[in-house]
Design a protein around this nucleic acid. Sequence first.
RNA 1: GCUGAGAUGGCGGAGUGGACAAUCGCACCAGACUGUAAAUCUGGUGGCCGUAUGGCCUACCUAGGUUCGAAUCCUAGUCUCAGCA
Length: 389
Amino acid sequence: MQKFSFELIKKDNKTKARAAIIHTPHGDIETPAFSVVGTKASVKGLDETDLKNAGSQVVLANTYHLYLRPGVDVIKKFGDLRNFMKWDGPMITDSGGYQVSYLWTKGEEVGQSVKITDKGAKFRSHIDGSIHEITPEKSMQIQKILGADIIMAFDQPIKLANSDRKNKEALRRTFDWEERSFKEHKKLKSDQALYGILHGGLNKKIRKNFLDYILTAGFDGIAFGDETIGADPNFTAKGMDTVSEFLPDDKPVHALGLGGGPEGIFVAVERGMDTFDNTGITRMARTGLLFTYPEDGGLSLNKFRIDINKSKFKDVKKPISKTCNCHTCNNYSSAYIHHLLVSGEPLGVRLTTIHNVYFINDLMREVRRSIINGHFNALKKHWLGERKY
RNA sequence: GCUGAGAUGGCGGAGUGGACAAUCGCACCAGACUGUAAAUCUGGUGGCCGUAUGGCCUACCUAGGUUCGAAUCCUAGUCUCAGCA
């Protein structure tokens, strides 16, 4: 079984964009690459065959959700998550830090709460209300059982809406938690690659300090975190610009929750990101927002997507995209997809998800090719025109 | 044919004399969707005054009537449904 390693193939000479191969015990990831999100050991609507056909190389799953259900004991019986869900390629798991401290904002509003102390995060299960605690150590232990090739340090994300005092505390705690994650990971003698999560918002100094810490500590990779890499590409650019120039050549960089569709991708790739995950790709598919290529009329203005729910598609014979080569576009009309989604037919979700996942993977392949061939900027121009971020 | 119930906006369905341009649901339209408690969420939905906290018009089967005022009360008509035959 091959060990985890990062092999740089080609660097773009004008930007920080780079093509590489992340070698993992369960296969290679040719980067830049998108990791599809299968939080609860499932990419909603798709199985392994669908994912492979859509060009997916790696799947991200979630510690928080799988810990609560089905529980680590069940996964243990299957050896690891990969066997449980029948995915034989590389996997990433998130540490659960994001979920317990961020996704619970909604819960807090209705009286549920998460108590975060230096020890860890105490929270109530959204499934049955039972009380649980995840500490950095426990997150590492759970992630070892889940058995992904790439795992994340346990952190407490900064929230822009929070007070400076609260964020300062979160940052200090995150340093501490990541250090403890690292120690526990060593103690467990796991061959998984542990990424340190890079925080600091738009503050260049904090970001740089954090990066220095991650590098000197010896994490296997860097995960660019917090809210700055959301849905707004301009904001993403600002966040990444704080450290882009300092990213090392010998470590993979992952962008956690990179939004912004194709624009967000170009912004991130040209700032040195190798992999990224995003729930929006599959969620948008479920809600009918489907990606389109420039050849189909996709552009920044329409965010490279159409809303298949619109009644104007109800009798359109053409596929979603005439350029796309996915299973859905090769076989079905826009009208049929429109009908399936509007009628709430499960097949609709499967077909739209196949399309969006294929689209992003295809774009990533094209981006990779362009970096290797030295045409990255030309490709970017083809997609974004003269738009600058 | 008899007896009873009813007719409200695209549909279903509240309201039963002033606070009703009319609760609500669906449908429709628009928007949002970051390390997925998300096939979800938010907003709009008679017309016109560019937008409105505002104003005017047309509206609750039809035609009359009572009243300062009616979707709501009265009279007649038309239609629908249920039971009986």
